[in-house]
């Protein structure tokens, strides 16, 4: 049984079809990359899974349970965490307080404050941010802001984590570290679905890939298979784009 099933989902903005009949599955414990050129609908897909948008038609099932139409906070409590492409820390709070929001409210039964604080602290430790726990988030550098995003999402104790370009803007050594972090998160039993432009990171991390173009799925498979796929190459090179189905 797949952990997450996306079944024939359509999404319309005004008259534009942003997602046109996409289906894919994610299995427990795997790392799946969602790739595609700019404007292909990756972030829209994320927003559909997280409940920011409701699909125009189609279903999304998480652990065999309908989550289409649920609000973001309900989906979070079902066990789906998410990071934003542009980090969205709560600027008036410290790092610890930011993470505590997740550890208090991220689950069905919220923790008491003291336990939530310990839990948040241990997440901060595991993400290597222990020197920064009391820093106001406005003073963090970009790599730490990205990590904070991860900390907050992990503090909700998700089964599955959606990562929206966590590598964006990082230098090569920071990317390496982030890859290590993500692998550690996966080894703790968290399923990862991520959107990424940086192909090196995608190839290094992903076990399977789904490729979107113009809101439709054009390929799916292991990284090696996908990279050799003609349609994908066309989509990325922009050649004869209009002939690509979708």
């Amino acid at each position: 049984m797949p952990l997450l099933q996306v079944k024939d989902v359509y999404m319309k903005f005004g008259g534009v079809m942003a997602i046109a009949g996409v289906s894919f599955d994610i299995h427990e414990g795997e790392i799946l990359a969602l790739i595609g050129p700019n404007g292909s609908g990756k972030t829209t897909m994320f927003n559909l899974i997280c409940g920011v948008f409701s699909p125009y038609s189609g279903h999304i099932l998480f652990r065999d349970c309908q989550i289409t139409g649920l609000k973001p906070y309900q989906i979070c409590r079902k066990g789906i965490g998410r990071t934003f492409q542009i980090a969205k820390p709560f600027p008036k709070m410290t790092v610890l307080e930011n993470v505590m929001v997740g550890s208090i409210y991220g689950k069905k039964n919220s923790y008491p404050l003291k336990k939530a604080r310990e839990m948040a602290m241990s997440v901060i430790h595991s993400m290597g941010m222990e020197q920064k726990w009391d820093t106001p988030v406005t003073e963090l550098t970009l790599p730490y802001k990205k990590r904070l995003e991860l900390c907050k999402a992990i503090a909700t104790e998700p089964h599955m984590l959606l990562l929206d370009e966590v590598m964006g803007g990082l230098n090569p050594s920071e990317v390496e570290e982030m890859i290590k972090l993500l692998k550690r998160i996966q080894s703790n039993g968290v399923t990862l679905l991520f959107v990424e432009h940086l192909m090196r990171a995608v190839m290094g991390l992903a076990e399977r890939m789904v490729v979107l173009n113009h809101g439709a799925k054009i390929a799916e498979g292991s990284p090696v298979e996908v990279v050799e796929d003609l349609q994908v190459i066309e989509a990325y090179l922009g050649k004869e784009n209009q002939f690509v189905k979708g």
């Binding site: 920011v52 906070y73 979070c76 709070m93 929001v101």
Partner: peptide, 25 residues
């Protein structure tokens, strides 16, 4: 001093991000 503060502050700063952490804004 209570849990409410964390929800209030999260909602204050960014409702969308708060929702993703399980807070019902």
């Amino acid at each position: 001093k209570s849990k409410l503060y964390y929800a209030f502050a999260a909602v204050h700063d960014d409702e969308e991000a708060a929702g993703m952490l399980g807070v019902n804004p």
